[in-house]
Design a protein around this nucleic acid. Structure first.
Lengths: 171, 171
DNA sequence: CTAGACATGTTACTCTATCACATTTCTCTT
DNA sequence: AAGAGAAATGTGATAGAGTAACATGTCTAG
């Protein structure tokens, strides 16, 4: 893997923006959403969400665990997995299966069907609005009598930056 | 997990049909497709595809490996992973990330965007036609300047049988 | 203030996947 | 047909991801 950690602007959204602001804002909305659902956003869980928001990219469970441990929480896998599972169950984070990773939800509360766009060159991950995709999926499933409850829609390809400038061709 | 192995009719397609025939037919089409692409469908690879077709369901890499080993091939993980990767790369099989599993492609050669429908009750997996879903995905990605190359579209929910008869409610 | 539910911490382990290297087989060119 | 290079396979070792089970602690409702 390359190191998206050193290039935060290329993660989770392809456009540049104020991370500190959007993270703080999203955290506030996430807390409101948790309260609305009656879900208990305990210290570990809140810190886990903060970690995802601060990193502003998809993170592996063990990477999250390292940071939790550094903050004085447990240092065993279940600590991270339980917190992450809680966040996903409550719509505050998403799981990106292609990357075996997790990312904070950028639109907590707004009933949405996230679509993840993963750049194969720079590893950036963007959460795109996927209402139309989800609708098409529901329809395709309904045609077979299948009722969709949860969906993972993930695409691998080229982000604007990597498609425009340097491709993987002979550069 | 429940045991889809004991209930083959509930796998990969929700409708009952002649497995032996569809497996044999699909294998023939897969071989033609491999030849067309100039891909070498070696013994291990062919046997791997046969195993997936015979099982007619999503299988874990290690489960495939066990059968390969029983057939006299190597018994180390890379043996299965390499063969499976080859099949996926050449459109002869698909990877179902949600299940950490692989399934034979039911429509080799026909350029298609598979959508996987996974029943959370009986674990059946169906490969549904997803051209419309893929089109919506491409559009959503294009709106952000992202070019989709490969996509994983997987849905968890209830298959017709499980939705109709016994739900997970208090039965 | 006590019982039950919920949450956390920890140990241990299983399952999934890849790296690295030796060996063989195939294919293309001459 | 011979030989070089590429592709494929086998094997050992190991990294990475995820879960089971149980003990302990904490919150909350009656």
């Amino acid at each position: 893997m390359s190191s998206p950690e050193t290039d935060p602007d290329a993660t989770l959204a392809f456009a540049r923006h104020d991370h500190a602001h959007c993270a703080c804002d999203t955290l506030a909305r996430a807390e409101a959403e948790a309260a609305r659902r009656g879900a208990r956003l305990t210290p570990v869980r809140k810190r886990t969400l903060e970690i995802l928001l601060e990193a502003h990219r998809a993170m592996g469970a063990y990477e999250v665990l390292d940071r939790l441990a550094a903050d004085g929480f447990g240092n065993q896998p279940p600590v991270a997995y339980r917190a992450l599972e809680f966040l996903v169950e409550n719509g505050l984070a998403h799981r990106v299966r292609r990357l075996n990773a997790f990312a904070a939800c950028m639109h907590p509360g707004e009933d949405h069907a996230p679509v993840f766009l993963i750049c194969r060159v720079c590893d950036a991950v963007a959460e795109a609005p996927g209402a139309a995709v989800r609708a098409a999926l529901d329809q395709a499933a309904a045609d077979l009598g299948f009722a969709v409850e949860r969906a993972n829609i993930e695409a691998l390809g080229l982000c604007p930056a990597c498609a425009g400038g340097a491709d993987d061709a002979t550069v």
